[in-house]
């Protein structure tokens, strides 16, 4: 489904990712862990198509297509969804308009008719229940005045509405209380299928109790320095990153 080869990325002349290799097959869940500043969000943003990064080397193929040639909106419509680490507030853009436009742009891309207002509200109600999203929130502007946890929930709510093939969750667990964490994990798991894949960026093993990964990777200084099964997450939880850092000293 996703194939990243020797991906090198820099911003303002500073190299942030240097030689990422990653293969993700349909149905798999990959966790990416790593110390602060190691490049996890950079990787997530590059996959979603953020333009300020310079791709200096390497390639990314998604469902057989060169991903780097697609606009962010085309990537989204082809099934890539990024749950942002820091969702932005957009005062003046009502949630409902935003969600409806997003859903209908996806439908248009697939050659489906746009949802009517009634159909859309019905869909929204259903998905709101799934992530236990407060109704009052969808009456506001996008993320406006949302608490940290509410913003994260809102990301998963959008994911539930858009039904992506490849979901990239960038620290969706940070800032969530324990109940919300379970709800969000439930929302993510509800979407899992043999065709859909998930990349979970997290600092905490706890989330992985709920969203069980097939592979765990450690990103350090812009490279994947270790990959293993879910037991690696426990090891990191226990020992921290010092041993990884030591192993990778030049």
């Amino acid at each position: 489904m996703l194939s990243i080869k020797n991906l090198c990325v820099s911003i303002e002349g500073k190299e942030i990712l240097n030689g990422i290799n990653l293969e993700i097959n349909p149905g798999e869940v990959h966790a990416i862990m790593g110390p602060n500043g190691s490049g996890k969000s950079t990787l997530a943003n590059v996959l979603a198509g953020k333009e300020e990064y310079e791709i200096t080397d390497g390639e990314i193929y998604y469902l057989g297509e060169n991903l780097l040639e697609l606009s962010p909106e085309d990537r989204a419509r082809k099934g890539i969804f990024l749950s942002f680490q820091y969702p932005v507030e957009i005062p003046g853009v009502p949630m409902i308009n935003f969600l409806k436009t997003a859903v209908n742009e996806h439908r248009k891309f697939k050659g489906e008719k746009p949802l009517t207002a009634g159909e859309f509200l019905k869909l929204m109600r259903e998905k709101k229940q799934l992530v236990e999203m407060d109704t009052e929130l969808t009456n506001r502007s996008v993320n406006e005045g949302f608490s940290g946890g509410e913003k994260k929930k809102n990301e998963i709510f959008q994911m539930a509405l858009l039904q992506p093939r490849l979901a990239i969750l960038d620290e969706t667990d940070s800032g969530l209380d324990i109940d919300a964490l379970k709800t969000v994990a439930h929302g993510v798991n509800a979407l899992r299928s043999p065709e859909n894949s998930t990349i979970v960026v997290t600092h905490y093993q706890r989330l992985l109790d709920y969203i069980v990964p097939d592979h765990v990777h450690v990103l350090y200084k812009g490279r994947i320095v270790k990959s293993a099964g879910k037991e690696l997450a426990f090891e990191l939880e226990e020992k921290g990153y010092d041993w990884i850092k030591k192993e990778n000293e030049d």
Partner: peptide
Amino acid sequence: FYLRARGIEEKQARLMLMNAFAYE
């Protein structure tokens, strides 16, 4: 970028942001 990352065409996204600017 947030709007585009949800599948909204760039031109449409810009319109939404200009409308938002005027909304106040």
